[in-house]
Design a protein around this nucleic acid. Structure first.
Length: 372
DNA sequence: CAGGCGTGGAG
DNA sequence: TCTCCAAGCCT
């Protein structure tokens, strides 16, 4: 009699059994999230609203579930359908997105909504390829919408899936080079039915059990199949290419305040960092270049007084801003506008700018103080 | 295809 | 304080 099946060899043909185990786990342990419909509802033939799936997936790109929840509620209450979103003022969309980061997502959101309304009669196209052709929708998001909204079998690969798969199959190739290999393994693991539930099950498993640090392998539905666990060190996976160090930049920000308290703002250029967002005047710092930290580059001469220093970390560099404040007379400003201090929180201000204003005018950006 | 592109929370 | 990172996309 031949010996039992080969042990820890890396199977070139993963068992679809894994997929079923994962679905069984998902039926009992899925997270309830505002943009989701339940497995039970799917079993009755109900699907999630593609608009809500799309909106949530865009917001969730490189962003935590907790951070997204409030924004998702705000957007769906204000713009319940893609038609209404398409009809919105782009500046209102930027204001509503302010604080969530990666602002090209918000600009593409509007472009995508316009395209779906104009070219697709307000309905999202029901294929991966057609979805991927839309602005802001890449490999991951196209597969996610296709599977979750339309139940199309698509290999959904995000950071969670990369982690789960690389552990279960001990993928030794470092990311991002391992992506194609991981995609193949996902495709081979996918069950034939319940594409959307499977995708969300993989992501839930990665988010709650197969976490980056201290995974809870004892509760994992795949613990008997996981090669990394068998090797005793799941945290070793996924292997990643070494990261580069983050450079440091500096500049100055100028908070000008009129006698009635209004603050001078202007709009950033339409491309590059924080494109089309609002800002207080600053020196010309960029991701690659420092700006002046003195008052030499102030927007106009005034009694600028140093308010303090603000530190902010972007993905690819960190910024230290010297913040100056001045009380100034009424004046007309080109390329800018005055915003009452009580309405400052409604502007499309990125977090770094809120920090700068806060340094110059304590409590200015705190919504709760405004009626005082 | 490597680099540009935000933010806030966890450890 | 510092490091890592969370459901990536675009050029």
């Amino acid at each position: 009699m031949p010996a039992s099946p080969p042990t820890a060899s890396k199977s070139p043909c993963p068992q679809p059994l894994l997929g079923q185990k994962l679905l069984d786990w998902y039926d009992r342990h899925h997270r309830d999230l505002p943009w989701r419909t339940t497995p039970a509802a799917h079993a009755k033939g109900e699907r999630a609203d593609p608009y809500r799936v799309w909106l949530s997936e865009i917001m969730l790109q490189q962003t935590t579930v907790e951070a997204v929840k409030a924004y998702f509620r705000k957007f769906t209450e204000r713009w319940p359908t893609i038609t209404e979103l398409s009809a919105a003022d782009p500046d209102d969309i930027m204001k509503a997105w302010a604080g969530l980061g990666y602002y090209s997502r918000a600009r593409n959101l509007k472009k995508c909504a316009d395209l779906v309304v104009a070219a697709h009669q307000g309905k999202f196209p029901e294929s991966e390829a057609a979805l991927k052709a839309l602005p802001g929708i890449g490999d991951y998001t196209a597969a996610a919408i296709a599977s979750i909204a339309f139940d199309i079998p698509a290999a959904v690969v995000d950071g969670n899936v990369e982690r789960v798969i690389s552990r279960v199959f001990t993928v030794e190739t470092p990311l991002p080079a391992a992506k194609p290999e991981i995609r193949e393994l996902v495709a081979a693991t996918m069950p034939e039915a319940r594409a959307g539930d499977f995708a969300q099950a993989m992501m839930d498993l990665g988010a709650t059990i197969c976490t980056p640090k201290r995974p809870v392998c004892l509760h994992c539905p795949l613990r008997d199949d996981c090669l990394a666990l068998r090797q005793t060190d799941p945290e070793r996976y996924p292997l990643k290419a070494p990261k580069k160090e983050r450079p440091s930049r500096q500049g100055a920000a100028f908070v000008a305040q009129r006698s009635d308290g209004a603050v001078l703002l202007r709009k950033r250029p339409s491309s590059g960092l924080l494109a089309e967002m609002a800002e207080v005047p600053t020196t010309a710092w960029t991701a690659k270049q420092d700006g002046d930290t003195s008052t030499n580059s102030a927007p106009f001469a005034a009694a600028w007084r140093f308010s303090g220093q603000v530190k902010h970390v972007f993905t690819h560099f960190e910024l230290r801003l010297d913040v100056y404040h001045a009380s100034v007379p009424d004046m007309v400003i080109q390329n800018g506008w005055w915003t009452p201090i009580t309405e400052i929180h409604e502007e499309a201000l990125p977090t770094v700018m809120k920090k700068a204003i806060e340094a110059a005018i304590p409590s200015a950006t705190k919504r709760s103080i405004k009626q005082a």
